[in-house]
Simulated assay, not measured.
Amino acid sequence: MKSVLKTAALKSPVQKSPALKTIRPVPDATRIAIIEDSDAGGERPLWRAHTLAMATDGTVHGDFAASHVAFTPGEVQRGSLYVAQGEVDAMAALQNGAAGCLSVHRLRGPHVRVDEIHVALARIARASRNRSRATMTALAGFAPGSLVDVVLHDALDRASRGMAWSADAELGMAASLCTLAADRNHAIFTLDSVDDARALRPHLFISGPTLDHRTGEGIAATLQQGGAAVLPADSCDFAAWRAAALDAGAQVYGYGRKPSADIRLIDTVTLDDGTTLVTADMMGRAMCWSLAEDLFEEGDAMESLAIMGAMRAGGASLGAAALALCGHVDQVEAPLAVAV
Rank of each mutant, 00 (worst) to 15 (best):
I188L: 15
L231H: 03
L52Y: 04
V269L: 14
P45I: 10
R161K: 12
G97I: 08
G74F: 05
L180P: 08
F189L: 08
S290W: 11
T56M: 07
K16D: 06
A197T: 09
R201Y: 05
F142S: 00
W47T: 02
G208I: 01
D183Y: 07
A181L: 05
A19K: 10
I206L: 14
R133N: 09
A310H: 05
L156I: 06
R242P: 00
L5T: 11
D247M: 09
G62R: 07
E303S: 02
H203E: 12
L277G: 00
S207T: 06
M287T: 05
R184P: 06
G218A: 08
T7D: 15
V14C: 08
L204Y: 04
V14K: 14
L200A: 08
A261I: 02
S17C: 02
A134F: 11
G218F: 04
P232H: 08
I307A: 02
R48D: 05
G256S: 07
T276Y: 02
A243G: 03
A337Y: 03
L336P: 05
Q251H: 13
I263A: 01
D195V: 13
R123V: 06
L147G: 10
T268R: 07
T59V: 15
L223P: 04
E333S: 14
V88E: 11
A29S: 11
A220F: 05
A98Q: 05
R198N: 08
L325M: 14
V338C: 14
S235G: 07
R257S: 06
L271P: 00
H203Q: 10
R184N: 10
K21L: 11
H328R: 11
E75M: 04
